[in-house]
Amino acid sequence: MIILILIAFAVLFFMFNVLPITKGNHLWSLLFLAGFILSGAAIIANDVNHFGMQVQSQTKTYHLASDSDKMGVLLYKALGNGQEKIYVYKTSAKQAKPKPTKTSDFSAKITRTKEDSYLKVTTKRYVYTNKWSKLLFGVFGNNREVKHRYYHFYVNKDWYVLSTDQAARLSKLLKTKQTEMKTKIASLVKAKVTQEIMANPSLAADPSKQQALTEAATKAATKQVLDQYVAQVK
């Protein structure tokens, strides 16, 4: 609509400025010129400053699934000098390929948590303030244009945040260290279980408590050994 208004003011200005068809044509020509200028200014203001629009915010929360079936991990790709990162993530273990964060008008933040990992995506968009603004500027197709996306990753404290290159190196390292890794974990678990039983001999007579102790020790030992290998690829 604003384009039609602009054209109409231009035609009327031409008619009343060039073709002396009515008395007082100079006054009318000035009014139509002002209308033409204001219409053009409104178009520029809409394009540059989103005149006639307001910001609408929407937040969605997603479960985060690890990119590895062996450990909790969130991956990213470093861009340029490494300061900017594009995170790739899964919201389901059944998801075939990880989804990347957007590459423009976005920012990402990581917060460590003791809870399950999840992601909050807040999207801010420009929308028309009312039906009249939509009628005027709808021709430009900028309704719901993204202003910014905020990715807030809440990552469990036991997860690793690695670049895709680091993850590839870690995968190769773990393949060559499988036997060593099992031996280290078994040794740490045995030492931990023995220590706990010596401190509390009653555990030796309770198989269920021994099993729980072994499971907890195995989890802690696996994390400890993985930390050592992860440190080698960073």
Rank of each mutant, 00 (worst) to 15 (best):
Q224T: 08
N17C: 08
Q83N: 13
A221F: 08
L31S: 10
V233P: 00
L162T: 04
K85D: 09
G52H: 09
P100Y: 04
R112P: 03
V73M: 00
G138T: 07
V18E: 06
Y87Q: 04
K219M: 04
S39W: 05
S202K: 13
V48E: 13
L64P: 07
V233W: 05
H63T: 15
G24L: 08
F9R: 01
I43W: 07
Q195K: 15
H152S: 01
L136H: 02
T122S: 02
G72P: 02
F13C: 06
T194C: 00
H50E: 06
L213A: 01
D47M: 15
L136N: 05
K99E: 11
Y128K: 09
K97M: 14
E145N: 13
L30N: 10
M1F: 13
T59K: 11
K70M: 13
M53L: 10
K23D: 11
V189S: 04
K90L: 07
L162A: 04
H152D: 11
L27Q: 07
T113A: 08
V18I: 10
Y151I: 13
V193H: 02
S171L: 05
W28E: 00
Q95G: 09
F16S: 00
L12F: 09
S68C: 11
S66F: 02
A220S: 12
N200A: 06
V48P: 08
N142W: 09
V73T: 06
A34G: 14
K192F: 11
M198F: 14
D227L: 04
T111K: 14
Y151C: 07
T113K: 09
A231Q: 13
F137T: 06
K131H: 03
Q95K: 09
Y160F: 15
G24C: 09
G72Q: 12
K114Q: 12
E196M: 08
V139M: 09
S104T: 15
Q211N: 10
R144W: 12
T129Q: 14
P201F: 01
H26A: 14
R125A: 14
M1T: 10
Y76Q: 02
R169P: 02
F14P: 04
K23P: 12
L12A: 06
K99G: 04
L135V: 08
Q195N: 11
S187T: 15
A10N: 03
F16H: 11
Q166F: 07
S187W: 07
G40E: 06
S202H: 02
A45P: 02
K60W: 05
G35E: 02
F9N: 11
G24V: 01
A204H: 08
L162R: 03
D67H: 12
G141K: 07
Q56M: 14
